[in-house]
Amino acid sequence: MSDAVLASARPSRAREAWRAALLPFASWSGGFAACVLVLVVTVAIFAPWLSPYDPLVNHFDAAGQLRRLEPPSGTHLLGTTYYGLDVLSQLIHGTRIVLIVGITCAVLIALIGTNIGLMAGYYGGRIDTILMRATDLAFGIPFIPFAVVLVALLGPSLWNTIIAISFLMWRSTARVIRSQVLSLRERGFVKAARIAGASDMRILYVHIFPNVLPMALLYVAFDIAWAVLAEASISFLGFGDPHQTSWGQMLYLAYVSGSIRQAWWWTVPPGAALSLFVIAVFLVGREYERLANPRLR
């Protein structure tokens, strides 16, 4: 409660943003993780130029034989698949799925979860009860069977996978945002806005929302990791979009072709990339969590 500490000079907006961007680098693991994320994004953007071949083109040797399960070599740096596709190119194109799934799901989850949390926390009473029952329900539904059934019904496509993921994953965001709103709505600035005659929408989106934004963003970050993992699981189970090359899909095909044991070059890269990406998101998220959640300081 000391003024002296709070009154410390504030750097400009730009410098603040720069400091926030550099925050993960405060620790060794955070810095490493941030580098991994930057790498994934760069690769995804420049995938067509970076990948040596089209990921969906079958390769044949001079004799016209399909280059089936070739170990890494000069022409195929990470070898080939059972179907004669270039593993490296598949891996590189897989980053695009990671980004599409991660970002789309995170945006959808954030939209649904944050709004449900805001409404439930702010209005309380009946609305809160109904929305929180719905949240409990979403928590009660086991994710993978739900997603499999939904994709089976709607047909396997990337979009349907994204819908299945977003349809359940908003639950934890909603809970966390609600609990934040519960305490914010008792604050003087919310009361002051009400006294001055601000509408509920104005109070929710102009006054309260900016204050839950850091927490919402943090959850978005974690949601990206969850969504990417979920997509991989669905694809691995064979319910992914057959026309896309995702890391989960690569593992699925390695499995169904029966080569998961011998062709390590086909399974280790997507598996390792997936783990690395998820861990990196969590590590970076954890650094930012300290900002959003003072108790961890």
């Binding site: 409660m1 604050r187 003087g188 600035f189 009361k191 002051a192 006294i195 001055a196 005659g197 006054h207 900016p210 204050n211």
Partner: peptide
């Protein structure tokens, strides 16, 4: 609404930290 206003106890909670 225009004719009444209030000042609160807690100087830390009574103004929006994001404004």
């Amino acid at each position: 609404r225009r004719s009444v206003q209030m000042v609160f106890q807690d100087p830390f909670g009574s103004i929006n930290p994001r404004f």
